[in-house]
Write a protein that binds this DNA or RNA. Structure first.
Lengths: 227, 227
DNA sequence: TTCATCCCATGACATTTGTCATGACTTAAC
DNA sequence: GTTAAGTCATGACAAATGTCATGGGATGAA
């Protein structure tokens, strides 16, 4: 069962998990999996972030399975360190936390996928498959929640569905600075124009976006995807 | 093949598509599909938004397949009218447009799913299945794009990953007004306090969010999901 | 050419926003 | 009871933001 068809070299994975029991369970699952005619080999196991990092740099595995609830520093910091390092392994988070906030944090920290520990048996193969195709994996209900949230927040359609708020190139430049939270002074320096000019552009932006303050302009710009 | 096991009543669908050729093709596909032991029946076909709307109100179908490129008014307006009406049919958009902006617009307008016409044969069944389970369907590569975008925009982690920016209740109230684009004066009126107090709260918010202006506070609040 | 229009740029002035110092009130600790 | 810490509230003053009027170029139509 293990070495069924090894014409292609196996997918190398690194397991980061401090619960020995769970780790063994995952390793067991991996033994039975096959990703597009490719078997999976566990090239290393770590129980601490530091150890995981050094093993990752040493083996540069194709994939890392990362537990979120490590005893010493959680998986988030590890994910960020991996981002900063030159290691380009794919990362799949295994977590007991089902709250959105945890998932958001993991994704922000650069994870390629997230699977609840309670659903590892059902979803792990699918997740690995998805991730190794350069895609992002989330449990279906979580993904749906993501999109629903998007639907709720992005309510306003530009000008009752008309033209997409034709801003002049310069105005667009200014708007981009604006939504970064820049002050008139900073915008002026960045665009090499005087503060007075910045203000004039901003006033014009207000007109076109039908708002009356820079704060309203920012929320409008975000809602209308003008940035 | 059509009526294989009709113990449950078929899934009623309404087809909104002005290209006769394509419509026939889709109908043909649907005849062969089966969603969880449920066959699919097309209870109506429309080629104009107005017609679609009246048919929808008449039949209240379980699912509507909506073409984006209708000759008279596009599918977006139809989607919004459906939202406003009491019709609670699920909606799946079939579109030739593969640009993100179109997909975003469709989702904002309340679509439950989006499939490229070029991929209907491969994805339609999967999409319908997903949608009828109260989930959202997007082509895998599009969904991934969504998440990657999220990863890029939501970069700032609250306080270098510490506590989630403990705002006092009152400060939270003020922040909520702030991200709506309200002025100090408006916030004061809304919360029944003086402008001076609003300013004080805002200053404290700046401290806790580590920003120096209301515009920065807004972008920070949005990035950190504080609203 | 002349005229109209649009974008970009600027300064003077009014308004809003942000800082700082201050005080009342509540809660928990000593 | 006193002290300390935290929230909410306010006014005076400094700094920024926003409005208005104005002018120089570039483009296109009459």
């Amino acid at each position: 069962m293990l070495t069924q068809s090894e014409q292609t070299k196996p997918l190398s994975t690194l397991l980061v998990e401090d619960d020995l029991h769970f780790r063994a369970g995952v390793r067991n699952l991996l033994d039975f999996y096959q990703i597009q005619n490719q078997t999976i080999s566990v090239v290393g196991e770590a129980n601490r972030p530091a150890m995981a990092l050094s093993l990752a740099e040493q083996h540069t595995p194709d994939l890392m399975l990362i537990d979120m609830e490590l005893s010493e520093g959680n998986g988030l910091t590890l994910l960020q360190q991996l981002q900063d390092s030159h290691v380009s392994s794919k990362t799949l988070v295994l977590s007991g936390h089902q709250e959105d906030s945890w998932i958001y944090k993991a994704m922000q920290a650069g994870a390629d996928g997230y699977v609840f520990k309670s659903q590892v048996a059902e979803q792990l193969l699918d997740a690995i498959n998805t991730i190794m195709q350069d895609r992002v994996y989330l449990p279906p209900e979580v993904a749906t929640g993501f999109f629903r949230k998007f639907q709720k927040t992005q309510t306003a359609l530009p000008n009752q569905m008309g033209e997409p708020c034709e801003l002049s190139p310069r105005e667009h430049d200014v708007l981009c600075c604006l939504v970064q939270g820049a002050s008139n002074d900073e915008i002026a320096k960045q665009l090499y124009i005087s503060v007075a000019t910045v203000k004039a552009h901003i006033t014009n932006i207000f007109l076109k976006l039908q708002v009356t303050s820079r704060t309203q302009a920012i929320v409008a710009a975000i809602k209308m995807n003008l940035v």
